[in-house]
Computed example of a mutant assay.
Amino acid sequence: MASPSHRRRSRRKWRAALVPAAVVAAVALAASLLMALRPDGNPTAADAPPAPVSGSPVPGSHSKASPTAPSRAPKPTPSPSKPPSSPPPATTTAPPRASNSAAAPASATAPPAGRIRPGVTYDGIATFYDTGNGDGACLYGPTDDVMTAAMNHADYETSRACGAYVRVRAADGASVTVRITNECPLPCAPGQLDLSAQAFAKLATPSAGRVPISWSLLSPGTPEAPERISIRYKTGSSSHWCGIQAVGHRNPLARLEVRDGGGWRQLRRTEYNYFLSEQGSGCGGELRLTDIYGERLTLDDLPVRPDVLQPTRVQFAAH
């Protein structure tokens, strides 16, 4: 049986434990009554803890921020309707200012002259060869004109030199005028002219073989140049395909064009000195010739007559 002193100590311990339990129960009862008296039962904004700013660590926390789920792109908010924007005003080009000089005619604009240019003197070597019947790479055909020459490959320039008149001078002052009717292939050097034997004899004795020369382009008058140009259609030409050649032009020919619909179409020049219309356009129609000085000559319709030299009534001006 416990002694009275021991029972008194037990009561004191029980009472000490009972007092805190009663306090906790009273606080819990008060809190439940407060929640019951609120209409929604949720804590107010003032009672809620502040939300952390995105990307900012929570104060007092040492943990790493957890990765957030990728946010969806917000839907575009419909903007108030706007009237359609008016198109930008059309830009206008101001008219050109008046010039004190009159506009140059189209014929005054010279096309590219190629390697051989007016007013330029070229140095080279003269040789000679047997011209036979006078025909050559330019396909002008046999001729009695013996004052001719073959142009070196570089200056021949895909037959652009064909028909050019050239004045050739030797070192002692002797000179001769020749017409380019042929090509001197390699190893003929740039500047070199292979003259007919008759033309070479005007500069030096045939035994010399080679002589230094200078030469320049010439725009001769009559009788060195014919009074008029002739046109020839190549063998096999028809209304479906044709090759066209101009013969006897005073100045080097820069372009040959045919009337194609409402305009002019330039034909390609071959190394054998014919201008080709491979689809037949313009064959037998109007032609337009342009020299390196820019002069244009328009020819009336000429029938397609292969291998026939058809004379015209026109010629380029002398310069």
Rank of each mutant, 00 (worst) to 15 (best):
N42P: 00
K202Q: 08
S3F: 05
W264K: 13
T222C: 01
P59S: 10
K234C: 04
L37N: 03
V146Y: 04
A48G: 03
R269F: 15
S32H: 05
R255D: 15
T91L: 02
D144W: 12
M35C: 07
R179G: 14
P306F: 13
P223L: 07
R250Q: 15
T298V: 14
L195S: 15
L256Q: 10
G134M: 05
P223T: 08
A51D: 10
W215Y: 03
P50Y: 10
S101A: 13
P87H: 14
G114M: 04
I116S: 01
V258S: 11
M151C: 09
A106F: 09
C242V: 10
D155L: 02
K13Q: 01
A102E: 15
I213T: 14
R210G: 10
I116T: 09
T270K: 02
D300R: 09
I244N: 06
F275T: 11
A17H: 03
V247N: 06
A208C: 00
L289K: 08
P80Y: 00
R296D: 08
A137C: 04
H240I: 05
D155R: 01
P206D: 11
P50Q: 13
L276H: 11
P83I: 08
S237H: 02
D172Q: 08
S214M: 11
V168T: 12
E271R: 13
P223R: 11
S79M: 09
V258N: 06
R117F: 11
G132Y: 15
E157P: 02
I116E: 05
A110G: 05
A31L: 06
A208R: 08
T131N: 07
E157D: 15
P223F: 02
S159N: 03
H6P: 00
Q198I: 09
V166Y: 12
T127W: 08
T312I: 00
V146W: 03
R7M: 08
S238P: 02
S196F: 11
K75Q: 04
V53G: 13
R288C: 15
E227Q: 14
R117S: 14
N251M: 01
R38K: 13
I180C: 05
G136P: 01
A65R: 03
A113H: 00
F275Y: 10
A106G: 10
V120R: 04
